[in-house]
C-alpha cells in the first residue's frame, strides 16, 4: 500500500499546481497582450522547443512554464487533465470567434456533403451507353416481308354500313405497324418504314413490307440477334397476343395468321 499512496498524493498535487497555472494562463490576458507586442514571439517558440531538451534549467516566463507542463502532461496518463486539455485545445480560437472544434466538425460535414453531391451528380449525369446512337450512321437497309389477316374485317364489311376505304385502311395499318416497331426498345432505333398492301377477297389479307436501317459496323451481329427474323417477327407477334382476344375492334389481327418470310 505504501508505494501507492504517495503516488496518489503526488498526482493530486500536480493536478492542483496544474490548475493554478491554468488560472495564470487564462487570467494573464494582459501579459499575453504585452508579450505579443514585443519581438520575443519567435524566440519564445524556439525556447519552448528547446525546453524539453534543456531540461528546464532556463528561466522561463509564466506561459512558457505552462507550455512545458503541457508537454510533460501528455506523457502522464491522467484522465482528468487529459480530457480538460483536449477540451481546452478544442475550444482554442483559430480566428475571430471560430473555435477549433467548429473547424473540425465543419470539415467532416464538408466531406459528407461532397460525397453525397458527387454521388447525386454521378447518377444524374449517368449516361446509359445503350441510349446513345447516331441515326445518321444507319445506312444499310434490311427488309422483312410477310402477311396477316384482319379477321374482324370481313365480317364487318358484310354487316355494317361503315365504309372503310382501302386507302384509309392501308394508312391505318401502316401507322399501327410503325407504332409497334417504333416503340420497341431494341428495334425502334433501326426501324425505317412499314408498307402495307391490302388484298380483299373473301377475307382481308394484308401484305406488309418492313424496312430497317443498320449501321455498317457490327452488321453481322445485328443481323443475327437484334435484327434477326426471330426478333422482328416475335415483337409483332407478342404485340398481337397482347391484344384483347375477344376484341371486336376492326383492326384486330389474328396472331395465328401472322407470318414472316
Amino acid at each position: 500500500m505504501d508505494p501507492v499512496l504517495p503516488l496518489y498524493t503526488r498526482n493530486g498535487n500536480d493536478g492542483g499546481s496544474y490548475s493554478s497555472s491554468e488560472w495564470v494562463a487564462t487570467g494573464n490576458g494582459d501579459g499575453g497582450v504585452a508579450y505579443r507586442n514585443s519581438e520575443e514571439t519567435e524566440r519564445d517558440n524556439l525556447l519552448t522547443v528547446q525546453v524539453p531538451a534543456g531540461n528546464g534549467e532556463m528561466t522561463l516566463s509564466g506561459h512558457e512554464v505552462e507550455a512545458q507542463r503541457n508537454l510533460a502532461n501528455t506523457h502522464t496518463p491522467r484522465e482528468i487533465s487529459a480530457t480538460s486539455r483536449v477540451k481546452r485545445e478544442l475550444s482554442e480560437i483559430v480566428f475571430c470567434r471560430v473555435r477549433l472544434w467548429m473547424v473540425i466538425i465543419s470539415i467532416f460535414v464538408l466531406i459528407v456533403v461532397v460525397i453525397i453531391i458527387s454521388m447525386v451528380v454521378c447518377s444524374a449525369i449517368h449516361e446509359d451507353p445503350d441510349e446513345k446512337f447516331d441515326p445518321s450512321l444507319f445506312k444499310v437497309p434490311l427488309f422483312f416481308n410477310g402477311s396477316f389477316q384482319l379477321s374482324n374485317m370481313a365480317f364487318e364489311e358484310e354487316h355494317s354500313t361503315l365504309n372503310y376505304s382501302s386507302d384509309a385502311l392501308t394508312a391505318d395499318l401502316q401507322e399501327k405497324l410503325a407504332d409497334i416497331y417504333r416503340s420497341s426498345p431494341a428495334l425502334g432505333r433501326y426501324f425505317s418504314k412499314a408498307e402495307i398492301h391490302v388484298l380483299r377477297n373473301s377475307s382481308v389479307i394484308a401484305d406488309y413490307h418492313l424496312t430497317f436501317l443498320m449501321p455498317e459496323e457490327q452488321q453481322d451481329q445485328l443481323r443475327n440477334f437484334t435484327l434477326s427474323r426471330e426478333m422482328v417477327y416475335n415483337v409483332f407477334r407478342q404485340f398481337l397476343y397482347d391484344q384483347e382476344p375477344d376484341s371486336s375492334e376492326l383492326l384486330y389481327i389474328d396472331p395465328l395468321s401472322l407470318n414472316m418470310s
Binding site: S123, D130, A186
Partner: peptide, 12 residues
C-alpha cells in the same frame, strides 16, 4: 444503393 439505376435490356 448509390449507383445509377441500370437497365437490363432483354432481347429474349
Amino acid at each position: 444503393v448509390f449507383k445509377p439505376k441500370y437497365k437490363l435490356r432483354v432481347l429474349r
